[in-house]
Design a protein around this nucleic acid. Structure first.
Length: 402
DNA sequence: AGTCGTGTACCCGGGTCACT
DNA sequence: AGTGACCCGGGTACACGACT
């Protein structure tokens, strides 16, 4: 998070930019070739590619995350215009009459009254100035990125907002905003010294159905899908989306975000009332049907012994189905002989082990890729004493070719 | 050089309430 | 009283930087 441009928005996902650079170098990816990330997130792969003069495409289903990555790729703009836009916005915010009464309780509870008034004035000023220019979007990003710094609410592990917990270090919104603008101006200058223009394209779309929307044929893929049962990505930016009025409460999140994401959380599968039989009948899961059916059956049994009745049994089925659909899209989008690197982790909801890397590999072969190799990076589920089960988990790199 | 505050791709749910 | 959707986290340990 300390690298230029990458630091414009803290998003709890992804991999390190230097590692992406290493992989591209190992593969001898050259300018003229095209790199794809179907789970682009805040755009780390795309920013690295830009810095190397390599064309890239990112697909991101989360509308706000996609907007953030698009903004990060506006680094070729005039940094003085960014500064001028921000200055005008600050000036105009002075004259605003803030009205914070209509903010949902999540926002009300997360900020001191005066802080929220200041943020509301900044927001109103931005809304009155906004246009389609790069500086408009970059200043939007600046304001979006400082919301948590200015919030008194605790940021839980994995960046869930905990409005009932408070944190000590709260930065004044104006100060945070100005600092962010300066950082962005400085990073724009840094990047413009490295590269002439952005060669990246972000598609706000569903990874399960993107192939038709990108004209280029892909040489290489670097990506990391959501891990099964690791995190509800639709919840990740609920705080920011609520501030901007994109959603009013938890209930809107599914409609606004989650239904576009691949199924990886029980919140998703329970909301969609998925059926075991429908999932197992999907031809996308044929290559792993026996083992998947076995695991789903065990999960369905085990859940009866738990109080919460989480829908892990359908979650895992839908996860495999969706990953399979993504792999098919990748086969359509990639050139023959393309290389892929997937950063993946396995999972064991209710202690029932799901061999995710094995399943993804088998689904990749069925989708038409030729071969694979898995390199374990580290063990997981070893760190805590209070973990719910003792099933060893891991994270690693799945290299796929063909 | 200790202490404190804070964040971390931890891994995993449960509580509650409206509605049958 | 049973169910499930919505809402909101738990409990833990370690690294690291800021502050005594």
């Amino acid at each position: 998070m300390s690298l230029p441009i990458h630091r414009w928005f803290r998003y709890s996902a992804g991999f390190a930019a230097p590692w992406v650079e290493e992989v591209l170098s190992e593969w001898y990816i050259q300018p003229g070739q095209v790199v794809l990330d179907p789970f682009a997130g805040s755009g780390t792969v795309l920013v690295v590619c830009d810095s190397l003069g390599i064309s890239s495409v990112g697909v991101e289903a989360h509308p706000l995350v996609a907007r953030i990555s698009k903004a990060k790729l506006l680094w070729e703009c005039d940094r003085f215009r960014v500064g001028a836009f921000a200055a005008e916005m600050l000036r105009r915010s002075q004259g605003q009459k803030p009205d914070i009464s209509s903010y949902p309780s999540l926002i009300q509870r997360s900020f001191a009254t005066e802080v929220l008034k200041t943020l509301d004035s900044l927001k109103s000023a931005w809304l009155s100035l906004q246009n389609s220019s790069p500086e408009s979007e970059l200043v939007w990003l600046a304001l979006t990125s400082i919301l948590r710094l200015a919030s008194r609410a605790g940021t839980a592990q994995w960046q869930y907002i905990l409005p009932n917990k408070t944190k000590r270090k709260v930065i004044h919104p104006i100060e945070a905003f100005q600092r962010q603008i300066e950082t962005m101006k400085s990073d724009i200058r840094w990047m413009q010294a490295k590269a002439k223009r952005s060669l990246a394209q972000v598609v706000t779309g569903d990874a399960r159905a993107f192939a038709e929307s990108i004209p280029q044929k892909i040489d290489a893929v670097i990506t990391s899908p959501p891990y099964a049962n690791n995190y509800d990505y639709a919840d990740a930016l609920r705080f920011e989306m609520t501030f901007w009025g994109d959603v009013a409460g938890w209930g809107d999140i599914h409609e606004a975000v989650r239904r576009y994401l691949i199924v990886s959380s029980s919140q998703h599968s329970s909301r969609e009332r998925l059926k075991v039989d429908d999932l197992l009948e999907s031809d996308a899961v044929v290559p792993i049907r026996n083992e998947l059916s076995n695991v789903m059956g065990r999960l369905a049994q085990v859940r009866e012994t738990h109080g919460g009745k989480k829908h892990y049994h359908t979650m895992i089925g839908a996860y495999c189905r969706d990953i399979s659909l993504v792999l098919r899209q990748l086969r359509l989008a990639c050139k023959p002989g393309a290389r892929m690197c997937w950063v993946i982790g396995d999972s064991a909801p209710y202690g029932v082990y799901c061999p995710i890397e094995k399943w993804i590999a088998q689904l990749a072969l069925a989708a038409g890729f030729k071969c694979y190799r898995f390199d374990k990076l580290r063990d997981r589920n070893i760190k805590w004493k209070n973990r719910k089960h003792r099933v060893p988990l891991k994270e690693g790199l799945l290299w796929i070719e063909g």
